[in-house]
């Protein structure tokens, strides 16, 4: 099957390794992957700020770029949720672009959801030794129902042990622009997350969204924790993360 990778603007800019890990996972699952060159952003920053114009234009752009893919896979619950859940609400009419955008929405998947439910990946290629804990990112969890998928994939790593933290479904405080508009509240929420990570006894925290990871890692480092590793699920599943620690 022909799968388009939507890299997301955060992964493109802040941690390309997640994009490459995703490519490895998709190739391993037998997908024929394309990466449209001119992709940029899903439009969520504008949409969540109440500016629908730019979000609509970006939705049309994305639908064109991924028109010839059977599936679009996104290593982020937040961006996948934007496309899958929110794009259709921006195009309620019956015009040609609206039909195209809704079709795009219907075949767009968050990475772990795709690997488990569409590609039915049974043998993840990565290696990981040690304890890890998983943070459920809000949009993936509550907009897309991503809960068991990452856990099912992590369970395929023979030497990895999942130690669930308390309140793993509570927001880490990122929230896009929220993290800078209300930075004090955001940091406090990240503090609470850090406390639960520490209490879990795991030395690695894993999540499916880079936004959350930047927020969590940024706060951990600021409060003096240089040791806890903060990884994207794709990096854990595809790479040899954990072998060095």
């Amino acid at each position: 099957m022909r799968v388009g990778l939507f890299v997301t603007c955060l992964v493109d800019l802040m941690r390309p390794s997640i994009g490459f890990a995703t490519l490895r996972l998709l190739a391993h699952a037998g997908c024929d992957v394309i990466v449209p060159e001119h992709q940029t952003c899903c439009g969520q920053p504008g949409y969540n700020a109440g500016d629908h114009t730019a979000a609509r234009e970006l939705a049309i752009k994305l639908a064109l770029e991924f028109a010839d893919c059977d599936y679009v896979v996104v290593p982020s619950g937040s961006c996948a949720g934007m496309i899958r859940v929110h794009y259709p609400t921006l195009f309620p009419d019956d015009s040609e672009p609206a039909r195209r955008v809704r079709a795009l929405a219907a075949r767009t998947y968050e990475l772990t959801d795709f690997l488990v439910n569409i590609a039915k990946l049974q043998d993840v290629p990565g290696r990981f030794t040690g304890n890890l804990t998983y943070h459920d990112s809000c949009s993936g969890l509550r907009e897309l129902g991503v809960k068991q998928q990452p856990r099912a994939l992590l369970a395929q790593l023979p030497d990895a042990t999942l130690k669930e933290m308390a309140q793993c479904e509570t927001c880490c405080g990122f929230g896009g622009a929220f993290s800078v508009k209300f930075d004090e509240i955001s940091s406090r929420m990240a503090d609470n997350k850090a406390r639960h990570i520490h209490a879990s006894g795991a030395n690695t925290v894993v999540a499916g969204d880079l936004g959350c990871l930047l927020n969590i890692e940024g706060r951990l480092r600021r409060i003096g924790d240089q040791a806890t590793r903060v990884l994207h699920i794709a990096e854990v599943l595809a790479g040899d993360e954990g072998q060095t620690s």
Binding site: F20, S187, G218, R219
Partner: peptide, 23 residues
């Protein structure tokens, strides 16, 4: 500049974007 680093560090990127590396 801005509010991000008031309460957090920013993990720095590697210096090249995904699209550059991929190309």
């Amino acid at each position: 500049p801005g509010a991000w680093t008031r309460g957090r560090d920013l993990p720095a990127p590697a210096g090249q974007t995904f699209r550059d590396l991929y190309r």
